[in-house]
């Protein structure tokens, strides 16, 4: 066996976008509220980026058909994807709509609906989805378009909330980060000083960890965090 120091890089998968936490930290009650609201009909989850809207939908409705509108923006593409999830391969838009109309009621989550092309075809698709339960996940900029549905607000995270999220992630991944470093990031990104986005806070933490070699001291992470964040924010 080779003697020497073997440095093992921390597993950063807990900081990636695809990782779903076991619970929605600081907003545990929202999962149950969402489940209650969807029983009344179509629901719109509205909030700025990185506040856990998609994570909430994934937790509340694990069996739902989730359509990522950042990738599928046209109504035709969305309709075909929903039809395919139901089990029907439809090439034409009309066929896909017919398949959606005839299918059993399902729960469809339109993630990042802000980016979908909201044109005549989209109206046709939404009409075809009337029988189904739909959850819109959107940015507040299109709130006025969704006023007819029940609305669930997701406000930006404060520094204290962000700290709890970062702490939970660091504990899950056993990341070599000290408490003070996490506080530093939380204070910089937390609302109202920063945008209050958990995604951004996790991104900064990931950058810091990628740039450190072995032992991670609080001051080092804090300094890197500030540096990276300032770079990202295009600060002088």
């Amino acid at each position: 066996m080779v003697k020497g120091i073997i440095e093992k890089k921390p597993d950063l998968s807990v900081l990636s976008a695809g990782w779903i936490p076991p619970s929605l930290v600081c907003r545990e009650g929202k999962v149950e509220t969402t489940r209650k609201l969807i029983r009344e009909g179509t629901l719109a989850v509205i909030g700025p980026s990185g506040v856990g809207k998609t994570t909430l939908a994934r937790m509340a409705f694990p069996d739902a058909i989730i359509v990522d509108c950042t990738l599928r923006r046209r109504a035709q593409s969305i309709a075909r994807y929903i039809a395919l999830s139901i089990g029907i391969k439809a090439r034409r838009f009309g066929d896909a709509l017919n398949a959606i109309r005839k299918a059993e009621a399902r729960l469809v989550v339109l993630d990042d609906f802000t980016l979908a092309f909201r044109n005549r075809e989209m109206r046709l698709l939404l009409r075809a989805l009337e029988k189904h339960l739909v959850v819109f996940i959107a940015h507040p900029s299109i709130r006025y378009e969704l006023l007819e549905y029940s609305i669930l607000e997701m406000p930006p995270y404060s520094a204290a909330e962000l700290y709890r999220i970062l702490e939970a992630r660091a504990a899950s991944g056993r990341l070599p980060v000290e408490e003070e470093a996490l506080w530093e990031i939380a204070r910089l990104v937390g609302w109202p000083k920063g945008p209050g986005s958990a995604r951004l806070a996790l991104y900064v933490l990931r950058l810091c960890l990628e740039r450190t070699v072995s032992e991670v001291s609080a001051s080092l992470v804090a300094r890197l965090a500030r540096k990276e964040l300032f770079h990202v924010l295009n600060f002088p």
């Binding site: 700025p48 980026s49 945008p195 986005s197 951004l200 806070a201 990202v232």
Partner: peptide, 8 residues
């Protein structure tokens, strides 16, 4: 680029 509000 990188959107600082979205963190994406």
């Amino acid at each position: 680029g990188f959107c600082i509000k979205c963190g994406m």
